[in-house]
Computed example of a mutant assay.
Amino acid sequence: MNNFKEPKEFSGGEAIFVLIKRLILLNPGTYPNHPLMGVGLVKNWRFREMDDVLPIKQAIQDQIETYLPEYSINNIDVVKKSNNELSITIEVNNVIFRMETTKDDDIKLSEL
């Protein structure tokens, strides 16, 4: 909502960021017409012990290529930090987006 209590409209890099963020957080099965849509970061990966983050990276890349094919992925980097916290950096159309999880299981999103 904007300052006038109207739905906020996004454009440019901010709009791309919102689409990617929603795709990463969306649980598969949420939309019956597209049952495989969504990475389900919280539901599918929250309590897993992760020695290898490649499956998360691959899931994000597959989802963007399938459901947001109009955007060109330049790079996806998933780094495991302490206590199973993740730092996800995605470069799309030469714009860098970063998502970080915290030990409190909150997800903080920011655009670089």
Results as ranks from 00 to 15, higher is better:
Ile60Gly: 04
Leu86Gly: 03
Leu86Asn: 01
His34Cys: 15
Lys80Arg: 09
Val18Tyr: 10
Arg48Leu: 15
Thr30Gly: 12
Arg22Tyr: 15
Lys108Glu: 04
Lys8Asn: 15
Ile64Asp: 06
Tyr71Ala: 05
Ile60Met: 06
Lys103Cys: 08
Ile76Ser: 09
Asn74Phe: 04
Pro7Cys: 01
Glu100Asn: 05
Gly38Ala: 01
Leu41Arg: 00
Arg22His: 13
Leu41Met: 03
Thr30Met: 15
Glu91Cys: 10
Glu100Leu: 06
Ile76Lys: 09
Asp52Pro: 04
Lys8Val: 12
Gln61Tyr: 12
Phe97Leu: 04
Arg46Cys: 13
Asn93Ile: 01
Leu25Asn: 04
Glu9Arg: 02
Leu26Ser: 04
Val39His: 05
Leu36Ile: 11
Asp52Leu: 08
Lys8Ser: 14
Lys5Arg: 14
Tyr31Ala: 15
Gly40Phe: 04
Thr66Lys: 08
Asp62His: 07
Met37Asn: 05
Tyr67Phe: 12
Lys80Gln: 05
Asn84Val: 14
Asn75Cys: 12
Ile73Val: 13
Glu65Ser: 11
Leu112Ala: 15
Lys43Gln: 10
Gly38Ile: 03
Asn94Gly: 02
Glu65Trp: 00
Leu109Gln: 02
Ala59Asp: 02
Thr89Tyr: 10
Ile20Val: 12
Gly40Trp: 05
Arg22Thr: 15
Asn83Thr: 09
Pro35Ser: 09
Thr89Phe: 13
Glu85Leu: 08
Ile56Ala: 00
Asn84Thr: 04
Asn2Cys: 08
Met1Asn: 07
Ile56Gln: 00
Ile60Cys: 02
Lys81Met: 14
Pro7Phe: 10
Glu6Trp: 06
Glu14Leu: 15
Glu70Cys: 11
Asn27Gln: 03
Thr101Phe: 07
Lys21Met: 00
Ser72Leu: 13
Phe97Pro: 00
Lys81Trp: 13
Glu91Gln: 08
Asn27Gly: 02
Pro7Gln: 02
Asn3Ile: 09
Ile96Thr: 03
Ile76Cys: 13
Ser72Ile: 10
Ile88Cys: 02
Asp62Leu: 13
Pro69Gly: 07
